[in-house]
Nucleic acid binder design. Structure first.
Lengths: 166, 166
DNA sequence: TTGGAAAGTCAACAAGGCTGACATAAAATC
DNA sequence: GATTTTATGTCAGCCTTGTTGACTTTCCAA
């Protein structure tokens, strides 16, 4: 309570209350963020974990299993369960590496691409609408704060995707 | 691909690529957002669900179970399991309503307050550091975009907390 | 007095995390 | 060439946190 006696207006955004509001904004916004894809996936045999896999494979075609593991931050057992069903259902294809044949390079099939676009379209619609409502300056700020909030290891993955893929 | 032929620079922030980057920023940032409290909670018998309950009870002392249900967006069975352990462990107290004695008004005990502050402190430290790194203008934009991303029902809960209490 | 809302409880289940142990193939190293 | 390391896959089992459905108790309000 008495920790923030700073009333210089330039630091008002560091007020305890402001920071708490930011925390709650993240919580509520994340729910909106996942709501549309979740709705699409319920009824299918898939969940949020499948969405994430399909998203990042679509983003970086040919990515390896271990790279995906690092990006998603889960165990290989957990990811494997997801990838297995996606491959069984013909949404994802694993091609043996040509230079290193231990590696499996992951690609979306045509069918997988259809689902990816369906999910992505819904999520992008909401994001685009939020962007439009807030305006370009707000979007820049949004991205800056989020980037500063990431763990350094995650920021590396985020940045790598910036450039466009392997 | 051919959907965004708009090259008017004022709308560049609505580029498909920009929107996708925003989606990934949310994903990676949310992991950072929850990482510190998660670390504290592992080893205790609690998880993220307990954190959320303790957070919102601390924010709105005296809130009812059904209000908490609406804010958290889970089923009462799921919340009940969490509240039961918190009450058994003496972190949360449920007081029978004075005007409507069916209602239970939830409060943190002293012990509950200690945990709340511990978790909150960790999470606020990260948020504050991100705020500091990004600056006041970015923070305003961050909040605007997040708010626009929420479902209307969630935005109502978010706004109510703005004013300060029940 | 009675209907219905608020709260709590029991049971069963699913998704999606986790650990540990182990198997295989292929690359890298000695 | 033999050995070690790496990438991947798989089995088994556990935990948290979500779900639905059925049911009870309490008690406000019409």
């Amino acid at each position: 309570m008495a920790e923030n006696t700073n009333r210089g207006e330039s630091l008002l955004f560091l007020t305890d209350e402001q920071v708490r509001k930011g925390i709650e904004a993240m919580f509520f916004a994340y729910r909106g963020f996942t709501a549309d894809p979740d709705r699409i996936l319920e009824g299918m045999d898939y969940g949020r974990a499948h969405h994430r896999a399909v998203h990042f494979i679509g983003r970086s075609p040919g990515t390896t299993v271990s790279n995906l593991l690092a990006v998603l931050g889960v165990t290989k057992q957990s990811l494997n369960r997801v990838l297995r069903t996606l491959m069984e259902d013909g949404l994802v294809e694993a091609r043996v590496g040509r230079v290193d044949r231990r590696e499996r390079h992951l690609h979306l099939t045509e069918k997988g691409g259809v689902l990816e676009r369906q999910l992505s379209e819904a999520q992008r619609a909401r994001m685009r609408s939020a962007y439009r409502a807030a305006g370009p300056a707000a979007v820049a700020g949004f991205r800056q704060v989020l980037e500063a909030m990431m763990d350094p290891a995650m920021r590396a993955h985020y940045g790598r995707l910036k450039e466009g893929g392997p």
